[in-house]
Nucleic acid binder design. Structure first.
Length: 522
RNA sequence: GGUCCGUUCGUCUAGGGGUUAGGACAUCAGGUUUUCAUCCUGAAAACAGGGGUUCGAUUCCCCUACGGACUGCCA
């Protein structure tokens, strides 16, 4: 007895981990959805399991062209590679519910035959009428449940032959689950612990629609079962219907195949409260989508993080930390590191307000961790319009000089501009502030001195610069800004001596001469 | 309204029967830097409230308050 129980547990532990991300293609995936996908991915990779994409398109009315493609593109931008899915295949396909349409009815039929479900003929108008009259009688949210079903038109209230007649003549019908009276339905959520609901509080949900498609609830359970899903990791908005799903497993005879549930806390709006929604982006000034989305009807573009210049690593890192943390003080993680640290037991219970600022910080941190070579590969513009040889080595040095000043890869464009071209204009404010005509002679003589240096290196230049200042009783703060304006056109930038070395003697000479000649004070 | 879930600095969070309740972002103040940015140092900033249990509760239990999700032939 004991040993067999032990064996059973062993089997359960050794069960292959299979998780699915199951969005419905009703529009672009927003960051909450991406995080759900991410947690599924991390959990699968961490446990040597499979990460599966399943498209839940049981509602034809809400189908949005391009949405599925968007989902794939978003996942792929985030490097959340699929093991199985609509475009990658797999032995449990098809992975679109619309393509699985035929398989659902037999399960529905089983439920009807066992008395766990029934036909209902009420039209949408009749349902509205029922709800309306119940509301006016003081019921805040009327449901089709184990009480109200007795006054509706269904196979429970109709004589058998009438039901058969209606079906055989092609009347529209739906199939509803028949929730039992006073049953305690409970399950253990990996994040929340035991959740228990009395069946009296669950309504007779439609599981099969009059258009011949299953509803989410049924399709979800049937597919998770047939795809051998071991863990259902999804948003907290599904928590209220989880007991129904558990009950469905029981009715279908799959009680020992019920997956483990993990209901993730929601991502909340940064201002006020409530679930972050697709509309919040414009209102709050940050994207809510991973990559750009173009509304196929209006052609309106909704901004994505990719296009706004964020790195996938930073985006993923930020998302991972919205509701999860490793329990250490380390915060900057790449995907592989997240995989090795991830665990559902460290996912929090309460909703997290989205923090755009923190994402910027993550972006900066990840940019800093990118090596110069990688940044070099990402540089679009590697042509220099003045007479130096822009070797790769040159660029690596320039990048090293400039890298830590940037939050975005794009910031480097500005930082790099003086290394790309000498055809810049001088910034007027900088000139007004620091360009001093009386010191022009000093700038010239300083230039002469450094041009005579044997080694035009930042350290040699720095030494002669300081010597010159000492000899002429000048302060650094006077002459240096002028030099900077002459060389870069503006006042902000990285170490001046480093810039001079990299530009090289000839180019520096050219720029100083030109500045002295061209800059008009005031 | 009902059901379910939740509640530690402004935000993300660590912690967990005895702690100066820790970190990060943001904020503010100093410092380094020729400059801007970076960087460094520091400051301010939290256990929702009330009852239990206990020698002791922020931590465990209950209640209240507040917040959220759900309440469709949507997912």
């Amino acid at each position: 007895m004991c040993s067999s129980k032990f064996k059973l547990n062993m089997n359960k532990d050794e069960k292959v981990i299979r998780v699915r991300f199951a969005p419905s293609p009703t529009g672009p995936l927003h960051i909450g959805g991406v995080r759900t996908a991410l947690y599924n991915f991390l959990f699968a990779r961490k446990n040597n399991g499979k990460f599966i994409l399943r498209i839940e398109d049981t509602d034809q009315n809400r189908y949005v062209p391009g949405a599925e493609k968007y989902i794939q593109e978003a996942l792929s931008w985030c490097s959340l590679d699929l093991d199985e899915g609509p475009n990658v295949g797999g032995e449990f396909g098809p992975y679109r519910q619309s393509e699985r349409k035929e398989m659902y009815y037999s399960f529905v039929k089983n439920l009807i035959d066992s008395g766990d479900a029934y036909y209902a003929f009420d039209t949408p108008e009749e349902l509205d009428g029922m709800r309306e009259s119940m509301r006016s009688a003081g019921v805040p949210s009327p449901t089709y449940n184990n009480i109200s079903r007795s006054s509706m038109i269904n196979s429970l209230t109709l004589p058998l032959d009438e039901t058969e007649k209606r079906i055989s003549r092609g009347d529209k019908f739906v199939v509803r689950i028949k929730m039992p009276r006073n049953h305690e339905i409970k399950f253990k959520d990996k994040i929340r612990g035991w959740v228990s609901v009395n069946s009296n509080n669950i309504d007779d949900k439609v599981i099969y629609k009059s258009d011949g498609m299953p509803t989410y609830h049924l399709a979800n359970v049937v597919d998770d079962y047939s795809m051998k899903i071991s863990h259902v990791i999804r948003g907290e908005e599904w928590l209220p219907s989880a007991p129904l799903h558990v009950y469905l497993y029981k009715c279908l005879g799959w009680e020992d195949q019920i997956p483990q549930f993990a209901h993730l806390p929601l991502i909340l709006k940064p201002d006020g409260n409530g679930k972050l929604s697709k509309r919040d982006g414009d209102r709050l000034g940050f994207p809510v989508f991973p990559v750009n989305w173009k509304n196929p009807e209006t052609n309106e573009i909704y901004k994505g993080y990719r296009e706004e210049g964020f790195s996938r690593a930073a985006f993923i890192n930020m998302l991972a930390f919205l509701g999860w943390n490793p329990g250490t003080e380390k915060e900057v993680f790449n995907l592989d590191e997240l995989v090795s640290e991830f665990s559902l037991s460290r996912v929090g219970k309460s909703g997290a307000k989205y923090d755009f600022n923190k994402l910027k910080w993550f972006n900066q941190q990840h940019l800093r961790r990118m090596d110069n070579e990688e940044i070099y590969d990402n540089l679009v513009d590697k042509k220099v319009d003045f007479s130096i040889n822009p070797s790769k080595e040159y660029w690596l040095k320039v990048i090293g000089l400039v890298k830590e000043r940037a939050t975005f890869l794009d910031d480097l464009k500005l930082e790099l501009s003086c290394f790309l071209s000498n055809k810049f204009t001088y910034d007027v404010n900088s000139i007004n502030k620091k360009w001093n005509l009386e010191l022009l002679p000093h700038l010239s003589s300083l230039a002469t001195i450094i041009f005579n240096l044997q080694k035009f290196t930042s350290s040699q230049i720095e030494i002669s610069f300081h010597n010159y200042l000492d000899d002429n009783d000048l302060s650094l703060g006077k002459l240096m800004p002028m030099l900077r304006i002459a060389i870069t056109g503006r006042l902000a930038g990285p170490s001046m001596f480093g810039i001079l070395e990299l530009l090289g003697k000839e180019e520096v000479k050219l720029r100083i001469d030109r500045a002295i000649k061209d800059i008009q004070h005031g």
